[in-house]
Simulated assay, not measured.
Amino acid sequence: MKQTKISITVILLFGLGLFFFGTDGFQAFTTETARTHKLIEQQPTFPNVELEDSKKRTYSFDEFKGKYVFITFIYTACTDVCPQLELNMYEVYEQIPETYKGEDIVFLSISFDPKNDTPEVLERYREFFHSDGETWRMARINDKKALQQLLDSFGVIVIPDENGHFQHNSAFYMVDREGTLINVLDFTEIDEAAETVNDLLQTNRSTIKKGGKTS
């Protein structure tokens, strides 16, 4: 009996140890949280892809150099998570002081369905979510290879089905002034995301006033 208890204890401790290391010290309890944690650690750089926005303007991601970029990945035919994702993005956008918008930060919704999300479609989508098309832009990446490179580097999983829809993960992605991913935020936690962004922007402004370097 005593030997049985010892064996059970050893097995439990062994399993707990595997779980600890497999979840990076209990910090990642699901595949998605593990992916998010890894992204924040790796801090990939946003590839300098060419974007085409709802105003039919084309430019590289360098357009936003020197500014933070708050990003979502969407497709406009989505009927479940994407509308909620963009509504929540709007709520975050509304909590950012006007003085920061366009100067310190730009909001950017990127479609991963460029075939269907033409500039005209993105323009209608933009208007529905009260995006101004400037400080909050909606765009697509026409180059399939460049688009996939971006999705892969930012851990965005996009799986097409037979009906023209996609299964995909969703989050808020925060890119710094040099194009480096510095945070992945839960899109359901609106106030927390807005607070994180505002704290970052305030710190950035304070650092600039003191003549220091910002990230």
Rank of each mutant, 00 (worst) to 15 (best):
D152L: 03
I190E: 00
G179N: 09
H37C: 02
I141P: 00
T118E: 01
T36R: 08
S215Y: 14
I110N: 00
S131P: 04
S215C: 10
M1P: 14
N169F: 00
T4K: 13
E91N: 15
K210P: 05
K65F: 07
Q202T: 14
I8G: 10
F19M: 12
D104P: 04
L51G: 08
E32R: 08
E86Q: 11
I182Y: 05
D24M: 02
K2A: 14
E86W: 00
K55P: 02
L85Q: 12
E63F: 12
F154D: 01
T58V: 10
E192A: 15
Q3D: 14
T45P: 02
L151A: 07
A194P: 06
C78S: 11
T45W: 06
D161C: 09
E162D: 14
W136T: 05
F187E: 07
D117Q: 04
Y100V: 07
S170P: 04
T30M: 03
Q27S: 13
D104T: 12
M1D: 15
F21E: 12
D53E: 07
T9Y: 11
E195I: 09
K115F: 04
H165L: 13
K38F: 07
H168P: 04
E123Y: 10
M138V: 12
Y93F: 11
R137Q: 13
Y93D: 07
A139R: 00
N204I: 08
D143P: 09
D132Y: 04
R140P: 02
I182M: 07
L12K: 09
Q42A: 11
L18E: 10
S215T: 15
L51N: 07
Q43K: 15
Y75H: 09
N88D: 05
T118Q: 01
S111M: 00
D53F: 00
E195N: 14
E178P: 05
I182R: 14
S109K: 01
L147D: 01
F129R: 08
T4F: 11
N142Y: 07
L85Y: 06
D199T: 15
G179R: 07
L201N: 08
V175M: 02
P47E: 07
V197S: 00
V197E: 00
R177G: 10
P44Q: 07
L87Q: 13
F172I: 06
T31F: 10
S111D: 00
